[in-house]
Design a protein around this nucleic acid. Structure first.
Lengths: 108, 108
DNA sequence: ACTATTTATCGTAATATTGCAATATAATAA
DNA sequence: TTATTATATTGCAATATTACGATAAATAGT
């Protein structure tokens, strides 16, 4: 079917999955890593940096914007993409909380 | 195309993406949350807990096993699924390291 | 051996994702 | 106005994912 049955899951589950899904592509990981590395906005060169065609990059940026982990500000002809520090931290907290095993006791 | 161009990305990028991709489905999040909650192995009842058909659950378990975040031990007729604490921690560290923004300075 | 139980696999339909060429859009520059 | 430049959108082909019915495989109990 290809269609996830979101109705049967909690909002938290759907949310976590949506975040992870967006992070689940190497191009999007690469874009985020690059944004962190250059410590500034990207206006342009992402296509050369990543190595995918411009429409493909544009699509990946759209996915990233969907969960607000980046933001894009129009700057004349180009668009400056930045890390959305606030939302990044929220995402970080959600994932960290989910992955926390501290109260877990092994049975085997 | 539907085919990710993994060759153009680093192993780290492909690895992180692969992990995130597996976590990118609410059923798999739900399975992991349940495993954590019950603090023991699951032999059986996952189908009732999650609410998807048995073959679908089996497929999701296979995906989770692919990144070793769970392990399945055959126990007679049934299979006992457990959190793989060691690998869980590795995954946790990978994601935590990736999401660490502490050295990042905003430009905007 | 036969049956029941549990999980995996196969086959398949519906939908989603990835990638790119072509084209559209929008803003600036000449 | 007419380029030029940068990004988005459209359309499409190839592949992947999700879900499940049917069936297989493997073990336990009778």
């Amino acid at each position: 079917m290809g269609l996830t049955k979101s109705e049967i899951f909690t909002e938290e589950q759907n949310n976590l999955a949506a975040i992870a899904k967006v992070l689940g592509h190497p191009a999007r990981i690469a874009i985020l890593q690059h944004l962190m590395k250059i410590q500034s906005c990207i206006c342009g060169d992402l296509v050369n940096v990543i190595g995918l065609a411009q429409p493909t990059i544009s699509q990946h940026l759209k996915e990233l914007k969907k969960i607000n982990i980046i933001q894009g500000d129009i700057e004349g002809t180009s668009v400056c993409y930045c890390i959305n520090k606030e939302e990044w931290k929220n995402i970080q907290h959600s994932l960290t909380a989910f992955l926390d095993l501290s109260v877990y006791k092994n049975c085997c």
